[in-house]
Nucleic acid binder design. Structure first.
Length: 824
RNA sequence: GCCGAAGUGGUGGAAUUGGCAGACGCGCCGGACUCAAAAUCCGGUGGGGCUUACACCCCGUGUGGGUUCGAAUCCCACCUUCGGCACCA
């Protein structure tokens, strides 16, 4: 008979809820803050959630049993596009849709038996949350870190709306697949570029983050050191400034390239024979999507402008081109082209027959100066470079920069790939940007005391054109807080990544009406000790959060300057080798698994099937296996009911061989499970060793006559088994804990310490190798010396067969493990 | 193209510091219980060879080399798969 998981799980969930078992308060104990990335309330949890939150729950429960004061909260990333789409499609108001989804999902999470302190729940769409998101916006505005500028943004002509970069997939709208274009719009930005250096440098501090994520962030910030150099243009009164990481190659700069959008272009060709062609080229570039233009395999095309620049060191005239491969928003939007030492320049030079002059050659190697087959991008010795000839190019780099600085034609310079964070969205379901536009006073921030700027309920959802907030006259029309005259509100809302950049602070004090959070509470709980979530957030969410925390730190609000001490990026849940998705039809619903096997089985399986960082292949049979295991545990404990009222203590002297053997397994298991959870998050191997323990207990109880010594040994094993298993499968262990006659909760127990004496065996098995191949195993006293090990090994009959008639060259002894005899 | 991760039985995965490869689970094979089935329990299960013998031998962690008494683990070269970035001057 299978155990009644459904009844048991519901019973204990109710009990925990009644007792408010997971409520957390600030205490003198050492704190531990474990956080899983909060979900978007789509309405249904998926297996990725089950995995994410099961991992977090094991950590939270384990740390609590280890004596920490654990904060383990949950909430909702509740603003965003899907709610609005639901409004358009089904006529449900986004607010209603979202709140109903939250209720559904909260119930589903509760049904997993997760140890959240629900008193601290947050939803980013509630007034008392987004009020503070707006408050932070004002702080950033005060500091000059929030600003407005006109720029070109991604625009979907079919949905008639702007899209975030992350909503553009392969150059097309992720919703309707229409190619995305560009549109000039006045937008709000956060000046994350001011923090580029600190965000980069502090990556070194993130010792508990995966290397992979740190490298992705480094690449995203994309710092390059180099120089800015001014080139004079013949018969033109302005100088052309370029950025290069290779000032050492300046003698090889044989032409210049401007981005088609470069501000000089029109002036350079004005009233010349080149004008018409150039203008057409610019227009064509505007029409080409960004993705097509910037893809590395796009063919390089360009046009001569009819103009020449002067290379400041060679003094030679070099032609100026415009071309698609130079981007307006990186560096200065112009380059000096060195075809001999740059792949792209080389490709372009070959196509348009421009001169290629090598200025660096490999050391100890001659090259054919006239006939370069491919660009040389490595380090080497300077040639064709006047007084810098013969120097190593790295050395020449700094000398040339120094020379340029002396002559006032250039200076050292640093460039980043990181762009400022565009936070405006022409969307309804988001945090309103607390800004008012007044004809007299210009941009006026909403005064703090007027917050929150409430999101009105009454708007039209057409999915077309401008922000839906524009359709609510009452919202739009207001008075200027400065001069009192008529004014208009900003109708864009904020990117939802703003909401999620500070939610971990709110959990520390989620019901505070006067402040986003109390500084003392944040001081007690922050940083997050363990953050857990999908690697898809490796850049955006994690970088934005780091930025936000640094800003809050600088204005004195945050006690810490990094949010997350340790980060665990869990792998995806796959079925048939592919990510679960509706379109592939390979989705397994958590509700169904919970219905058929229970939450404990679902949790156990996602933790057992793979280590957390790796992708997990779903297996229905694997689930069955975990279910079988839990049933086996249930029967084991239930069958032994008669031993639990025996309160004998274990006396080590009266233990026989099999008692010692069971205690050896038990205490080795305690050691292993502890280390697997604490040091490595290897829940899969922790669970497998618990399975081995259960197998051992079965063998023991079946083979023995249960006198009171053995009852005590068994009781010890069962009690500890339930405690070890409790973080993984909290319901069944709680039930069984009570079946063994206890009134308390297994989850209030301390985590067991293993008994060192029990993990020492009297006899051990030593491997004997001859020339590295295993030839025998010998059982010896565990206190054996190295000399005796060698003696015993050489005495082995099996070994003799292999060393007979050979010289023993060497004997290697690894204490208590292995002897290797080298014989020739 | 660049950066990163990975490659181990039929399968998901173990092997934690260079020291018994394949723990644990799934699947499969055989058996017990049963009128029968389900459930449960017991035994076997990397490949090959040999044997009356559960004794023994050989091969084996993507491929090819190397270091070492000893390599899944370290080094070099290569192949494949997956993920990220991608004309960033």
């Amino acid at each position: 008979m299978a155990y009644n998981f459904s009844k048991i799980e519901k019973k204990w969930e109710q009990k925990w809820e009644q007792d408010d078992s997971f409520a957390t308060y600030e205490t003198d104990k050492q704190k531990y803050y474990v956080l899983e990335m909060f979900p978007y309330p789509s309405g249904k949890i998926h297996m990725g959630h089950v995995r994410n939150y099961s991992i977090g729950d094991v950590v939270a429960r384990f740390k609590k049993m280890r004596g920490f004061n654990v904060l383990h909260p949950m909430g909702w990333d509740a603003f965003g596009l899907p709610a609005e789409n639901a409004a358009i499609k089904h006529g449900i108001h986004p607010n209603k849709w979202t709140l109903e989804n939250i209720d559904d999902m909260r119930n589903q999470l509760k049904r997993l038996g997760l140890s959240y302190d629900w008193n601290r729940e947050v939803a980013t769409c509630s007034e008392d949350y987004y009020k503070w998101t707006q408050w932070f916006f004002l702080k950033l505005y005060e500091k000059g870190l929030a600003y407005k500028k006109k720029s070109s943004v991604n625009w979907c002509p079919s949905c008639e709306t702007v899209l975030a970069n992350e909503q553009v997939v392969n150059g097309a709208c992720e919703r309707c697949d229409t190619p995305v274009g560009k549109k000039e719009l006045d937008q709000w930005y956060f000046k994350i570029t001011d923090y580029a250096d600190r965000l980069l440098d502090d990556i070194e501090k993130l010792k508990g983050w995966p290397e992979k994520v740190k490298i992705m962030q480094k690449n995203w910030i994309g710092k390059s050191k180099g120089a800015e150099i001014d080139f004079e243009i013949k018969d033109f009164d302005k100088k052309l400034r370029v950025f290069t990481t290779r000032p050492d190659t300046i003698y090889g700069a044989t032409y210049m390239v401007l981005a088609p959008e470069h501000p000089y272009v029109l002036d350079l060709v004005k009233e010349t024979e080149y004008e018409e062609e150039i203008i057409n080229f610019r227009k064509e570039m505007e029409r080409t999507s960004e993705i097509d233009r910037t893809s590395a395999n796009a063919e390089k095309v360009g046009l001569f402008t009819g103009r020449y620049a002067i290379n400041p060191l060679t003094k030679k005239e070099i032609p100026i081109y415009i071309a698609n491969y130079v981007l307006i928003d990186y560096g200065t939007g112009a380059i000096m082209a060195v075809p001999a030492h740059d792949e792209r320049d080389f490709e372009f030079a070959k196509k348009y027959d421009l001169p290629v002059i090598p200025v660096i050659k490999p050391e100890n190697e001659e090259i054919d100066l006239e006939n370069i087959k491919k660009p040389y991008t490595d380090n080497g010795v300077m040639i064709n470079s006047d007084k810098f000839n013969g120097l190593n190019n790295e050395e020449a780099k700094s000398k040339i920069v120094k020379y340029l600085e002396e002559e006032k034609i250039g200076k050292e310079s640093i460039n980043y790939k990181l762009r400022d964070w565009l936070i405006s969205r022409q969307r309804y379901w988001g945090t309103p940007i607390p800004i008012i536009y007044c004809d007299e006073c210009g941009i006026v921030p909403v005064p703090e005391e007027d917050l929150p700027v409430l999101l009105p309920k009454d708007v039209e959802f057409t999915g077309k054109g401008k922000s839906p907030l524009d359709t609510n006259e009452e919202f739009v029309n207001t008075t200027c807080p400065k001069c009192g005259k008529k004014a208009k509100r900003e109708t864009d809302t904020m990117d939802t990544f703003v909401d999620s950049s500070w939610y971990f602070f709110r959990y520390t004090d989620s019901n505070n009406d006067n402040m986003p959070f109390d500084k003392n509470k944040a001081n007690y709980w922050m940083k997050v000790d363990q953050y857990i979530g999908g690697v898809e957030h490796a850049i955006l969410h994690l970088l934005y959060s780091r930025f936000f925390v640094k800003v809050l730190h600088d204005v004195g609000l945050s006690p810490v300057d990094e949010p997350f001490e340790n980060l665990l990026t869990q792998g995806m849940v796959l079925k048939d080798g592919a990510k679960m998705s509706k379109s592939k039809g390979n989705v397994v619903s958590p509700e169904e698994i919970i219905q058929n096997y229970g939450a404990d089985t679902a949790r156990l399986f996602v933790l057992f099937a793979a280590p957390p960082e790796r992708d997990l292949e779903w297996s229905d049979q694997g689930v069955e296996g975990c279910y079988r295991f839990l049933n086996r545990v249930y029967r084991l404990v239930e069958d032994l009911t008669f031993i639990y009222d025996d309160n004998s203590e274990i006396k080590v002297d009266s233990l026989d061989k099999s008692d010692k053997e069971l205690r050896y397994v038990l205490h080795s298991t305690i050691k292993k499970v502890t280390e697997d959870i604490e040091e490595r998050f290897n829940f899969n191997t922790a669970i497998s060793s618990i399975m081995e323990l259960v197998n051992e207990i079965y063998k023991y109880k079946d083979n023995e006559e249960l006198n009171s010594v053995k009852k005590a040994v068994l009781s010890e094993a069962i009690d500890n088994l339930l405690i070890l298993l409790s973080p993984f499968s909290p319901h069944i262990t709680e039930e069984l804990w009570h079946i063994t006659g206890k009134d308390s909760s297994v989850h209030d127990e301390s985590w067991p310490e293993y008994d060192k004496n029990a993990t020492v065996k009297d006899e051990i098995t030593v491997v004997v190798q001859v020339n590295g191949k295993v030839r025998d195993r010998i059982v010896v006293d565990s206190g054996i010396s190295k000399e005796d090990m060698e003696k015993e090994a050489l005495a082995s009959e099996k070994v003799k067969n292999y060393i007979d008639g050979k010289d023993i060259k060497k004997v290697i002894v690894v204490p208590k493990k292995l002897v290797n005899i080298v014989a020739k």
